[in-house]
Design a protein around this nucleic acid. Sequence first.
DNA 1: CTATAATGTGACCGGTCGGTCATATGACCA
DNA 2: TGGTCATATGACCGACCGGTCACATTATAG
Lengths: 220, 220
Amino acid sequence: MPKQTFLNLPEEKRNAIVNAAIDEFAEYGFESASINRIVANSGISKGSFYQYFEDKRDVFIYLLTLLEQEKISYFKDKRPPGNNMDTFQYFRWMIKTGMEFNSAYPRITQAISRVLLVEGLYYGKLFGDYHQKALDALRMMIKGAMARGEVDPSVDVDLAVMVMDTWSNAISTYILNEGMKHKDMMKWVRSSRTQEKIDKLLYVMEYGLRKTESEFEASR
Amino acid sequence: MPKQTFLNLPEEKRNAIVNAAIDEFAEYGFESASINRIVANSGISKGSFYQYFEDKRDVFIYLLTLLEQEKISYFKDKRPPGNNMDTFQYFRWMIKTGMEFNSAYPRITQAISRVLLVEGLYYGKLFGDYHQKALDALRMMIKGAMARGEVDPSVDVDLAVMVMDTWSNAISTYILNEGMKHKDMMKWVRSSRTQEKIDKLLYVMEYGLRKTESEFEASR
DNA sequence: CTATAATGTGACCGGTCGGTCATATGACCA
DNA sequence: TGGTCATATGACCGACCGGTCACATTATAG
């Protein structure tokens, strides 16, 4: 967590530092991110940086908490479209709302997902617990779905967790990479073409790859 | 490609260098891999290294070609168990044989998949074309399957490529990480428990997550 | 044995890194 | 005004980086 000196800073200065850090991690990942560059791009001195944060990990974890807060408040004023959604419908809504969030905050999403999803595999000791939290939440969701009879109770829970985790990461990465090529990313994500693509991907997760598409067409 | 001086070296020395490089990339990825450590661990001087290779990328690409050769010769004396396999059966056989190969050469597999799959996303200009090759091969396979009527011809080919690519990477990573925990990795991969796990994962790819398992049991 | 070519070596280069610290600045209070 | 205390600064530290190069060593051939 940042030190009090950082929290005392005027908002403008804090934002400059945060933005420089986001850009740095998004561009270089965790290990290769340079505090020297962060300092240069945010217009503060190196000594100041170490008055604000303990070290590189500290500033990254601060970005994590920022993202978490933003995400919570973003999801707070959205509500699932239906009332009697089963788990797959709910998961689909969550993924899509998550995509909208990502395209609203693409840089910080990119920075953090790069470090957590990708480098987290290897820096397990630094950030492994954060990924584990997400997995636990998924596991609870699946167990709840089973209790409500939406998922076959004989399904291997660990397997389902891995599948859903893999899929949401793959879709996020895919959409984020594609979306970066467009000027108005939010508009692109909301476009019917993109939504259809996400639908297809989630459909494959739900029903599999074999002869999917004609059944997908038929199911609409 | 390595220079002639490297190819003239006695096999023992070449192996020492190759093994040190494999360990280095497996441990640190591409960017953080240190030539200083490679030369220290292989018992050659730094100057010699630059007589053998152009730079870091050069030695990594040499490892790539080594892996490719090993893989080709490994697959050469294996044959698919059946003659009338459809594409999904064939894909399943390929994945499983690939897993066996990975567990026979876990270090080099780990080193290269880490750099290509993970860092390749961001070092696109350095290694992007290698990943693209694999995608193209997959695309050809799927088109062939369509031509033979095994896959619904209305399937979105790009989608199928992405799904199969994502899956084989996810399964490889999963099996490699799990397998590293066991003494005899090859034995572990060949065990019926592990094989069943791989089957389940591939079954989900083929038929989807919804109420899979009881149908999976029924399908055996 | 000598001349020449090939190979091996590690000190050294300019640069970057994360992190420290003596000093300067400036706001606030007595 | 003078004193105090939080904050700001960037020169500096030791370590490591990828890469170079003048020189030493060894192998080959005449």
